[in-house]
């Protein structure tokens, strides 16, 4: 008895040590290239040029920078809403389609995600410019007389980013929608619910966890997005990531850059905490 107990204990501790050993490289990577740099940035944001919170004061106190925050949250919010609104029907279609077809459509969506981000963003520049395909089509259809300004402003940024973010809404939603038994919707119909009521009272509440996790992912990714706003946005409508880049690259002001980056990180973490608290997918519904 004693012997077997020791052996068991020994094996367990070996297993524990062994599994811990395997995570060391990844933990070291995260520590050296994420946690330590973030801490250093935090230090610089409160130490440069002189110790104190003056960087944060300037960042949150000046209307110029508040505009950048406003731009960032407006675009991220718009992208999230539009991506959810147009992504939901696609996810629903994919969930109820025969497998053969849904796999094909999924492949197209995933392929678009794998295509180089710069290439896709430049493609939008071409499509949206004054003489681009979109404007030409709208004019030839008689919907507009003069070309619309679709790039170098927040409209362009929103369009380009919505397109890039769509898969992040669609993919988690498909799983949730597939798990909803169609018989539940039939039951709702026999209870007297018309199509709209079936949607608002049954389907939507049941898919809310999927919508929330997709929306949060898109919102957080949008807040810190750099490439698309930099290429499709104008210089006058800066977003937060561009501001950080400008502070660090053009102005070599690490203090302000660090402060802006940390405000962004803080917002992200707060949103994540909210999601964990209210929309934990593992919680019994």
């Amino acid at each position: 008895m004693v012997l077997s107990a020791t052996t068991d204990g020994g094996q367990r501790s070996i297993r524990r040590n062994g599994s811990f050993g395997y995570v060391v490289p990844a933990l070291l990577l995260i520590a050296f290239f994420f946690i330590i740099p973030v801490l250093m940035l935090l230090m610089r944001s409160v130490l440069e040029p002189t110790p104190g919170l003056q960087n944060y004061q300037e960042l949150l106190g000046s209307t110029t920078y508040l505009r950048v925050f406003l731009n960032t949250f407006t675009v991220a919010g718009l992208v999230t809403v539009v991506a959810v609104v147009i992504g939901f029907p696609v996810a629903w279609l994919l969930a109820i389609m025969p497998d053969k077809w849904s796999r094909l459509v999924m492949a197209i969506i995933v392929l678009s995600m794998w295509t180089n981000l710069l290439a896709r963003t430049y493609a939008w520049m071409v499509l949206l410019q004054r003489t681009g395909v979109v404007n030409k089509m709208l004019i030839s259809l008689g919907i507009i007389d003069k070309p619309l300004a679709l790039v170098n402003n927040l409209v362009g940024v929103t369009i380009g980013m919505t397109y890039i973010m769509l898969p992040f809404v669609i993919l988690p939603l498909i799983g949730i929608l597939k798990s909803i038994d169609p018989a539940i919707l039939r039951a709702a119909a026999l209870c007297g619910a018309n199509k709209r009521q079936c949607f608002t009272r049954v389907l939507l509440p049941l898919s809310l966890p999927g919508i929330a996790s997709g929306a949060l992912m898109v919102f957080v990714m949008s807040l810190g997005y750099y490439v698309t706003p930099a290429l499709l946005g104008g210089t006058s409508n800066m977003m937060l990531a561009e501001l950080v880049a400008q502070f660090v690259q053009s102005l070599v002001n690490w203090g302000m850059g660090g402060a802006a980056a940390l405000v962004l990180l803080l917002v992200t973490m707060v949103l994540y905490a909210i999601q964990l608290k209210f929309l934990n997918p593992n919680r019994v519904r």
């Binding site: 018989a183 539940i184 709702a188 119909a189 026999l190 009272r201 049954v202 519904r285």
Partner: peptide, 30 residues
């Protein structure tokens, strides 16, 4: 007459209670 206007009751083979509602809310739904 579409399903939702037939005023017919039905119990299904699979469990079709609305999982986001309580028992009372389920029965109150119609």
């Amino acid at each position: 007459t579409p399903s939702h206007k037939r005023n017919i009751g039905m119990v299904f083979q699979r469990y079709t209670l609305f999982p986001h509602l309580t028992v009372g809310e389920n029965v109150a739904f119609p």
